[in-house]
Nucleic acid binder design. Structure first.
Lengths: 191, 191
DNA sequence: TTGACAAATATAACAGTGTTATAGATTATA
DNA sequence: TATAATCTATAACACTGTTATATTTGTCAA
């Protein structure tokens, strides 16, 4: 098996994906872009599923890396900066964002390996948000905080991506999201 | 044009949709379920688009109706009850929920009529959440509150629908969402 | 009532989708 | 070098939404 073929297919897939999103990823388009026939997509990947898994893993690895690189002076500042990075990611890597956070709206179901990448992402998020609570807080408490930050962050992204955001005063939505997050983080401290 | 045909097609579409979600809605499946050929889907509706629009409008009308029916003793109780209803809706009418809030993840783009139903839904949400602020607050301020409540509510639903929710302690997610919403509502009052 | 025309509907055909089957080419091994 | 194994191209399959063509049904005027 030529590992070069696998790489060619992956590169072609990435190019199409970044240019046209998930819907540009037909097996014929990938094969044409790679200068090959479609059969390699089945032998080197698990068909279309394997292509999407590879991109899903890439997407989560990217956002997880971004979360890990956050270094601010205070817990609150760190969490807010991480959320800002996620908000930015949802725009700069919209195709990846839609794939990794919108899969449940489509017929794609991530593989176990892909889900592991998602779980690692949530673990990273939990580590960063954990700084908002005391060190002896239980794992469940820490995950609860992470869920709240996750929900508010991705909720704002969901609203940004929904058509009704064009019908309301949506001017500087990221600053609004961060303000809401700051409000919520302060409230967590007082809870 | 027989309006009976239109109703047959709509009834068949609804049945398939409620049983199998959006992916059960091929034009051939709809036609077979209705005991007709596919052509009526194009003449009575605008093809597949028109079917999805009709279901989208129905979905938003349903959730908007639910929001309007909330009557509690206090602004906070009313908003929380409304959010509880939305959380329930996301489970009991999962197909509708995914269609109306997940459209941007798929290739379906709602028509202008469908978007009007979505906008009406947001207006209703804003009316209910407006009770959390003073009467003389500006429309922009009221929409900002509505956005925050929208984001936190749908953010939790998004987490519930994401595969990672199976990898964390997600026990009673609705109570957790409502607790986070209560925390946020209290913080809004103090802001 | 009949015939012409319009509207509605059935069926066929088209171009696209992911996947599998078959054929052919290339590589590895004895 | 010959054979077997592996890889890849191509064809075929069943499905998708849509349009084209054919047929049936309904309407209206003479």
């Amino acid at each position: 098996m030529k590992s070069d073929t696998r790489q060619q297919i992956l590169a072609a897939s990435s190019k199409l994906f970044l240019e046209g999103g998930i819907h540009a990823l037909s097996v014929r388009a990938i094969a044409k872009q790679a200068g090959l026939s479609t059969i390699g997509i089945y032998s080197h990947f698990n068909g279309k599923q394997g292509i999407l898994d590879a991109l899903y893993i890439e997407g989560f690895n990217n956002v997880t890396q971004v979360m890990k690189s956050v270094k601010e002076d205070s817990p609150k500042a760190s969490v807010l900066e991480m959320c800002r990075q996620i908000l930015d990611f949802s725009e700069h890597s919209a195709a990846h964002y839609k794939l990794i956070f919108g899969a449940n709206m489509t017929e794609y179901t991530p593989s176990e390996d892909a889900l592991q990448a998602a779980a690692d992402g949530f673990i990273t998020l939990t580590k960063v948000t954990s700084s908002l609570v005391e060190h002896h807080a239980s794992l469940i408490e820490k995950q609860e905080i992470a869920m709240e930050i996750w929900a508010l962050t991705h909720g704002y992204i969901g609203l940004n991506n929904h058509e009704i955001s064009h019908h309301i005063d949506w001017g500087n939505w990221k600053e609004r999201a961060l303000k809401a997050l700051a409000t919520h983080i302060d409230a967590l401290a007082a809870r």
